[in-house]
Design a protein around this nucleic acid. Structure first.
Lengths: 197, 197
DNA sequence: AACAGACCTGACCATTCAGTCAAGATTTTT
DNA sequence: AAAAATCTTGACTGAATGGTCAGGTCTGTT
């Protein structure tokens, strides 16, 4: 049975761990940092999670559901152009709403995806292959330009996640301007032009 | 004066440090790892570099020149379409030739660019702003589609670096296929369509 | 109020880490 | 070949780090 205090503190700890891991990566983060951000003592956060590794795993587990949802929402029955632009927009919105999650994921993949290899080669690959098939069907039907479905999906990931992962760089180059200002209009135009048969 | 042995060992150490830093980030890397990869003892690598930080700085310094060259090569006098596609292709080639450098850079920016902030806000911003002006001029002259020059440059970075930075993910999803197989054809088509007036 | 169970912490431990140093090995110069 | 300069290392240090534990405090129940 989970108590009120348990829920509150587990939540606090994961929130703090996300802050720290998403910036420093797993090896570069310390329990002291996480404890400080969470406002709890180090032994106390280890009362709620068995180890640093357990905190990280909890975050990654939680992440995968959120991360795959936008791609899952693509429907073969919809209009190809709308479905793909909708997917891109949802993904861009995720970079806005969950930048730390995006960076946590980026950190993990940069390190060779040691803790995500199974999930990527399993669930994610299956989902991507399935949606690639739908896109291929649309192309065969002459409803989309002849483009490689995998590269299309990768391009959506690259373009949308870039705004979360490279936020620091964009901020430094664009100065005061909000990093994502104008991004949606640009990407709308880009994918509109790319997808037309 | 630098001796033969100095040149060889400094080279070995930076090579090893690039291997290690590009995967684990600065905080996540240890001198023992670097020493092991370099095939030298830990005190010995500290004989050639004053500190872990000095190795990292040496890599970043070296990196910036390589990194900015492709953008620098854009000429206002060339054909807009060719200049921008050429830039994209050079950048994609860099992801192929220097994937570790790309990941080192990504790691650094993910962490908020603490050691690169000056270089990004200085040299890089100046160069980007300048090339953005050239692109704006082409647009005014009706030689390119009306797109935001900054977002255009960011999109080239995002799409090309993605193949180096997220290599592990792409490999897991595409299986045996070479991650970059088909990437150039896809990006050629994408930018061809995007840039037309 | 008293009890049980849940929650919290200071002090501690073993290991890892960046960096030092004195002394030995190797290479270069004379 | 001897002297000088450069290169290399084992053994070490102090600080940081992940994790433990005995005992104390708080909270909800009866």
């Amino acid at each position: 049975m989970t108590t009120r205090i348990q829920r509150r503190n587990r939540e606090r700890i994961l929130e703090a761990a996300l802050d720290v891991f998403s910036v420093n990566g797993f090896r570069g983060s310390t329990l002291d940092q996480i404890a400080a951000v969470a406002g709890l003592s180090k032994p106390n956060i280890l009362y709620y999670f068995d180890s640093k590794d357990a905190m990280h795993r909890a975050l990654l587990d939680q992440l995968l559901g959120i991360w795959l949802a936008p791609l899952r929402a693509i429907r073969a029955t919809g209009d190809p152009h709308d479905e793909i632009l909708g997917y891109m927009r949802r993904k861009l919105q995720m970079s806005r709403d969950y930048p730390r999650e995006s960076r946590l994921f980026a950190n993990e993949v940069l390190q060779g995806a040691p803790r995500l290899a199974d999930a990527i080669a399993g669930d994610l690959k299956a989902l991507v292959d399935d949606r690639a098939e739908i896109i291929r069907g649309w192309i065969e039907a002459g409803r989309l330009a002849r483009i490689d479905p995998h590269h299309l999906i990768f391009s959506i990931w690259a373009l949308t996640q870039h705004y979360a992962d490279f936020d620091a760089q964009i901020r430094l180059i664009r100065g005061d301007t909000d990093p994502m200002d104008g991004a949606e209009a640009f990407l709308d135009l880009l994918f509109d032009r790319l997808l037309k048969p």
